[in-house]
């Protein structure tokens, strides 16, 4: 009951999705549509998992008075204000839009822009040609970086004007991405995809059950 029925559901939905994709029969297509509909209806409820986990984390921090626990209250203030206005009035409510545009968007964008500083610092401290492999990585990164910005071609066309072709920096960047990078990525895609397919078969057949979690 606790494990077997979910496994049976998993098998049924998996098999249904495989077979209905190969059969154009109207019954088969009706099942295909219905299974997609079920998936669509169930998905929004999954949000509960994320929200409950977040709430539990911050409630625990407040209860245990861990370091900086007071800031967890700010998490709740932000969340409650949004929910109290947004749930009854919808995401197009002017206050919700104002909070989204002037609080969430700038903070989200700024938070990730910090990485520009850290990547520069890391490039200086850790990006070393310690081995042949590291040299390849470093050299490729430099060529791609210089080819990504207009100054690359500008310098090439001035300094390498004796060469038979122009815009060499962007050409070289494009060639690396088109050929060498393409080969490596394709190898990864093929490997990962074979893994995805074998894992999917294991899931449908009930061999892989880790998604059910522990317990009986």
């Amino acid at each position: 009951m606790k494990r077997q029925i979910p496994l049976a559901f998993c098998f049924l939905f998996g098999i249904a999705m495989i077979f209905t994709q190969f059969s154009p029969h109207s019954y088969s297509q009706a099942v295909y549509k219905e299974v997609i509909n079920w998936g669509l209806i169930i998905s929004p409820f999954a949000m509960v998992l994320a929200v409950v986990t977040l709430i539990q984390t911050h409630v625990t921090r407040i209860n245990l008075r861990t370091e900086h626990w007071q800031y967890s209250l700010i998490v709740f203030v932000g969340m409650i204000v949004m929910v109290l206005i947004g749930v009854p009035f919808g995401p197009q409510n002017s206050i919700v839009e104002w909070l989204y545009n002037n609080v969430q968007v700038p903070m989200d964008a700024t938070m990730f822009s910090l990485l520009a500083f850290f990547i520069a610092s890391a490039a200086f401290r850790a990006f070393r040609a310690r081995s042949f492999e590291a040299f390849l990585l470093l050299a490729t990164a430099m060529i791609v970086m210089i080819g990504n910005v207009p100054v690359g071609d500008l310098v090439w066309n001035k300094v390498m004007s004796w060469m038979p072709w122009t815009d060499g920096a962007s050409w070289l960047r494009q060639w690396i991405l088109d050929v060498l990078n393409n080969a490596a990525r394709r190898g990864i895609i093929l490997g990962v995809s074979l893994g995805v397919i074998s894992q999917s078969i294991r899931i449908i057949l009930g061999i892989e059950r880790s998604y059910l979690g522990g317990g009986d």
């Binding site: 520009a116 990547i119 520069a120 490039a123 200086f124 990006f127 470093l138 990164a141 430099m142 970086m145 210089i146 990504n148 910005v149 100054v151």
Partner: peptide, 9 residues
């Protein structure tokens, strides 16, 4: 900024 990072590397 690209030139700076290349210079730093």
């Amino acid at each position: 900024a690209h030139l700076l990072i290349i210079g730093l590397v």
